[in-house]
């Protein structure tokens, strides 16, 4: 707790150490790079979305119900993740764990629906090799799904560390950074929801 002396006590713990502050700033820079990464996949998808070859059109297989369930699972998980940080700033470790575990469970639910969705598409004759459009779809949505998977694993590891070491300037910075990552996945999902699913359905049905 030596680091806390140099900061005023109204500052949240994750900002109290120099390392914590720089790590948080560095993670924001990383998120800027992530935006650029996803933008290339979005560009690929939007250029190729009409190139369905002999396969089904994208909007043909999308379903509103599954889309809504996935969206609300991820959106709610982003909200509970924010509540976890709120509890962390009140030094309420129990609250932090409760909301973070809720976040992970919602994330797993999202992932389950996404995997199920992929299986349905493959069953209906649209896999990653069917057409340029479906290739772009699976790469884009799959990359987001991979990020969610990594995020779940990462948050679990950090929660184990918090359980062992308690709230310190180091562990709180790690929790805060993983929460930024999780919120960012929801930001990406907003654009997947719009550019992939809604646009696909609008193009299909007019």
């Amino acid at each position: 707790m030596a680091q806390s002396k140099v900061r005023d006590l109204n500052t949240p713990m994750e900002y109290q150490s120099e390392t914590g502050r720089l790590n948080i700033l560095g993670f924001w820079l990383f998120l800027g790079a992530e935006i650029a990464l996803f933008s290339t996949l979005f560009a690929t998808y939007m250029v190729l979305m009409d190139r369905t070859a002999d396969g089904p059109a994208l909007g043909e297989l999308f379903e509103v119900k599954g889309l809504l369930i996935q969206t609300f699972l991820l959106l709610t998980s982003s909200f509970t993740c924010g509540l976890a940080i709120h509890e962390m700033r009140r030094y309420n470790v129990k609250g932090l764990f409760f909301w973070m575990i809720t976040t992970i469970l919602l994330g797993l639910g999202f992932l389950g629906f996404e995997i199920y969705e992929f299986f349905v598409y493959i069953h209906e004759g649209a896999n990653i090799g069917t057409s340029a459009a479906w290739s772009a779809f699976f790469v884009l949505v799959g990359t987001h799904g991979l990020h969610v998977t990594l995020g779940i694993g990462w948050i679990i590891l950090i929660l184990i560390q918090v359980a062992k070491r308690g709230l310190t300037p180091q562990t709180t910075a790690k929790v805060f950074i993983s929460s930024l990552y999780w919120h960012f996945l929801d930001v990406v999902w907003i654009f997947l929801f719009t550019a992939v699913y809604l646009m696909g359905m609008v193009m299909q049905h007019g």
Partner: peptide
């Protein structure tokens, strides 16, 4: 660093729009 964060994210979105709309 707050301003760096905001500038960086805005620049990230600028790059994304150029890449997507341009492509």
């Amino acid at each position: 660093s707050g301003r760096i964060q905001i500038g960086n994210i805005l620049f990230g979105f600028f790059v994304a729009i150029v890449i997507v709309v341009g492509s």
